[in-house]
Design a protein around this nucleic acid. Sequence first.
DNA 1: GCGTAGATCGTCT
DNA 2: GACGATCTACGCT
Length: 217
Amino acid sequence: MTMGINSAVPHQSLRFDPDALKMVEFPRSFFLQDTSRIARRLLGAWLARRYRGRWYGARIVETEAYLGSGDTAAHSRGGRRTPRVEPMYLDGGHLYVFLVYGMHHCTNVVTGLSGIAEAVLLRAGEGPRGTPARLLSGPAKLSAGLGITVDSSGADLLASGDLRLFHNGSECRNVGTSPRIGVDYAGDAAAWPLRFFDRNSTEVSGPARLKNIEPNA
DNA sequence: GCGTAGATCGTCT
DNA sequence: GACGATCTACGCT
């Protein structure tokens, strides 16, 4: 067996202590709001993973909303319900993780009631102080940094398990908006402004022309 | 800074 | 059999 850079070990620099930072978890009701609103409000929240008894985490700085059956960019477009996508149909607060290009994992937070296949793709994060620049500046990099793989698809973030979503009460006040990245195949939906990012962050992914866009109050 | 190409394989048609 | 909700390296401007 090989244990290389693709193993599910989180990056050491992401060690943190959610208790010392007085972080709390979102209630289930948070994940039942409008998906675009959740995508925006997740900016500043911390995705966390417990590995061998220690916590590792990343502050989310970029997200995208995927709006279910009517969204031609979503894996659940047209009501598709295959084994891979099944976690998208769970209650809000579960994870949906998939593999792209045969090598990269992408992590999503499922939103909405059971039966509604919407989700928020977590596109980029910032680690604690000392984390190397650009370690988490992309959906696959964020997943790899925390060691999240498809093995975690379907996990419940509210089950007191090893994967959680924390926040410390402060919301991102400088939010930029743009079309989603990498969905050119989606026709009209490719232009929908469903990408959200922290304009103060240096770790946002994507081309420069999609950064520093005016705040969208 | 921008555009292009190649990696690599599960999933869906 | 084609195609990715991506990333890196490389060449050019």
